[in-house]
Design a binder for these strands. Sequence first.
DNA 1: ATAATTAGGTTGCCTATGCAATTAAACAAG
DNA 2: CTTGTTTAATTGCATAGGCAACCTAATTAT
Lengths: 146, 146
Amino acid sequence: MNDSLIISNEFYSFLTGKVSTAISRRLQRNLKAGKLNITAEQWTILYHLWQEEGLTQQELANLTFRDKPSITRLINNLEKMTLVIRVNDKQDRRSNLIYLTKEGRKLREEGMKQSLLTLQEATAGLEIEELRAAQIILDKVFHNIK
Amino acid sequence: MNDSLIISNEFYSFLTGKVSTAISRRLQRNLKAGKLNITAEQWTILYHLWQEEGLTQQELANLTFRDKPSITRLINNLEKMTLVIRVNDKQDRRSNLIYLTKEGRKLREEGMKQSLLTLQEATAGLEIEELRAAQIILDKVFHNIK
DNA sequence: ATAATTAGGTTGCCTATGCAATTAAACAAG
DNA sequence: CTTGTTTAATTGCATAGGCAACCTAATTAT
């Protein structure tokens, strides 16, 4: 058994979600503490819309690494909550352009605040260089299997 | 805006599941290619049982970082598939001890093979030292927010 | 002993996800 | 044109997840 096998179990458990689900749950808790009634997944959609509105569902799927049906349902729920609206694209009638409602825009400040807090909690005591190093390694992993 | 904010977006997207969902999907595909009709989540349960049978559901919950209801349902499905069985603990009648069936044990070789393949695909071209470094950093993150 | 608390599991409710199949619009080729 | 292909989105089906409430068995305290 070589070195890569020796470390595999531990490393595997990290990559298969241990850390990311912990972060996701923490984000969820922080959002709730900030009186935001949205899920962590809904946050990822809103996050991109807070940066740029009028994205198509396909673009949101690419940005959040989900499949199209997942986006359809997330947008369904966000629309029910009147945080976003679908606007049919006049240029390409197959596409929906997703816009925030006033209500959706109002959540931006608190949403960004709670996600930044989550990030700070997650990376407390870590050096910038460590974070960069981890990012580079994870990036390589992602490109291997994406 | 300080350094930690500058890198936050990228790093955040990695931590919130980009890499782990990619691995999970790859594992799922590899299991299927190996003719194993189990989900990646079921694999994580079987993985621990292949190492030690007779674990309680609570122990499996701790090992896989899931809550108890999630384990209840995973075991329900695995039991329906006749891969595991619940055995009521005579010492502590609150607990179920989970054992593999013959059929469940038979999946071990192929299951481990496909997960090892997935790990190798994910970490191709990476140095052992890089993996160790990433593991240490992710471990710190996990301990910050677990 | 008995009451109060803790611990293991289950159920209900709601959200999220992946895959496969489908519809409808856009585009390309003949 | 019109046929064939690609692309955006939706729907169906099945699994999985968290949280809260609950039940029962075990443990602790009085």
